[in-house]
Design a protein around this nucleic acid. Structure first.
Lengths: 327, 327
DNA sequence: CTGAAAGCGCTTACAG
DNA sequence: CTGAAAGCGCTTACAG
């Protein structure tokens, strides 16, 4: 809209051809002195390349599309921040496309959007629900796993194991688990299922039975104390609860506080996610290396872009337990 | 990445020049029959224009940048959905840029991004905190107000008035209000302040005093029942609470349920936002015409783009009260 | 109403 | 190491 500074302005000011400017921009071989002159001109004029022209010229677009269903949960914004920062350091621009509805999903697939980027990071979306056929562009899958693509994910199963061990060490035997059973067209609750499996398997190893009635569906948790939880807190002795998400744990903590029950004394609870508020409320929870995962994802997709022939890599991160007062 | 279909392919298939194809695409004058032939070719080949080329060619980019701090609260996704849908119908592409951090904010302003769009919608972000100087491109402000730009916003003051009236009609005199006092670099809580003002002014009209201790800062609400709320619910007779956000109301409802207090009988509460869950919990709340606002915003920005000389327009929407059992 | 051509800002062989 | 030139896919006056 206002007159933009182009590569030509830089070339003129530096007394070189546009090709040379382009080369310093893209890391071609340029005499160090020339590079310096050009860099100065760029800085002085505050030049930034026109992404559209770049795309069109068929070079790299130096930008990566991140598909995410969410941006504001702590998990997501930390992940996105980390991706953003890492990619920026690698000279890539991060464009976030929020897949918040079927509509947005459709528009994405009816557009050319994918081809305007060097690669795509699938953040927290289920691969199979997103892509009906294998995409012909680089895709990095974050928090899901698929043979044909690079993946970065957390060992959710192990997170469940950790939760079980933490409660067992406290010699707690009246165990419960909170999960939810949502079916969404784009998301799956597979991660939560895995946490649960890890939890149950670890109990099985100790010959501790875990029956259906110990598994509590928490899908109607919002805005209402859970009657089952009230009952458990009131009647069960030293109950131990594995909340497969900190959100569920928060609800339990609220209810318990209102009932005057003290976590770590009257009942025990382990959350999952290490959300910010958990420290203040002293919730024992499973921690994920969020920033490291975002960084790894960013690096892998860039490597893939630069070298499509690379073998497929799957990187699994291990969660850890953050012991606080609640268990 | 895969071979893309271009305007040339369409031209060849239709037996016309690329200019003509471009004209049918952009609504230039084309003979109806020619148009039909071209449209058929487009459909058959599944052609969609290359946005980058379009931008570069200096025509309209037919895409609008939406800046938002959030995508997943009900309010935001409904707003974004509505914008997306409306703009799509007007042949515009919606690109959402999540401003989730100072980092993302900086990158936005250090890039050319603004100039790759026909216009910008500022969704729920404080204008003055976003722009230090008046932007030289079309900006539509949603949920804030500024003289120089088109704005679409809700009459939050009136929302507060409605809340007061609803409680007064029930002849409730022990009144409280829940608000929060957050200072964020990009957001402001001005809307909540206005709701509160409307509430208090309406009380003043009835000569009902409202003291500082009736105003409850709810910023530490998450994960913990609010002691003040417990006290009020336990000791005050027929208390009436205005929750300036449904989220706060949810917290109160939870606490009350645990205490065995019945909304609409033991206490009264009015929320704000009409979030999905409020219906199920029968919360009386203030409703905003979200879809209408998104639609209006989209239409105004497009009109502005097409005619920059248009006088500035400010559109104020009125909230309404949704009476349910809680008040 | 329509075709041919210039130009948008960049990248990348191609020569040198 | 570097300049000149072609080309990316489109739009838009310019002729006709």
């Amino acid at each position: 809209m206002s007159k933009r500074i182009t590569i030509k302005d830089i070339a003129k000011m530096s007394g070189v051809g546009v090709g040379t400017v382009s080369r310093v921009l893209n890391g071609g071989s340029v005499k160090p002195e020339t590079r310096k002159v050009v860099m100065n001109a760029i800085k002085k004029l505050g030049y930034t390349p026109n992404v559209s022209a770049r795309r069109l010229a068929g070079g790299k677009t130096m930008s990566i599309l991140v598909l995410t269903p969410e941006i504001r949960t702590e998990f997501h914004w930390r992940l996105l921040e980390s991706i953003d920062k890492t990619l920026d350091a690698l000279d890539y621009q991060t464009v976030i496309y929020p897949v918040i509805s079927q509509n947005r999903y459709n528009r994405l697939f009816n557009s050319n959007l994918f081809y305007e980027f060097d690669g795509v990071i699938l953040c927290t979306l289920t691969y199979k629900k997103m892509f009906k056929k294998t995409p012909d562009f680089p895709v990095l899958i974050l928090e899901d796993c698929e043979d044909k693509h690079d993946c970065v994910f957390l060992d959710n199963y192990y997170g469940g194991v950790l939760a079980a061990e933490t409660l067992l060490e406290r010699n707690i035997r009246n165990l419960y688990a909170l999960y939810y059973d949502e079916t969404s067209p784009l998301l799956s609750n597979e991660n939560i299922i895995k946490r649960l499996e890890g939890f149950k398997d670890r109990l099985k190893e100790e010959d501790i039975s875990f029956e259906t009635d110990q598994l509590i569906n928490a899908d109607f948790f919002y805005g209402r104390p859970h009657e089952r939880i009230i009952q458990i807190l009131k009647t069960v002795e030293r109950p131990g609860i594995f909340a497969t998400t900190d959100n569920f744990a928060m609800n339990v903590l609220e209810t318990a506080a209102t009932l005057g029950k003290v976590p770590g004394k009257d009942f025990f609870i382990v959350g999952y996610d290490n959300q910010t508020w958990t420290e203040r409320l002293e919730l024992t929870t499973i921690k994920q290396p969020i920033e490291e995962m975002g960084e790894m994802a960013s690096k892998l997709i860039v490597e893939r872009i630069k070298n499509p022939e690379l073998p497929v890599r799957h990187v699994k991160f291990q969660p850890s337990i953050l012991r606080r007062k609640s268990a």
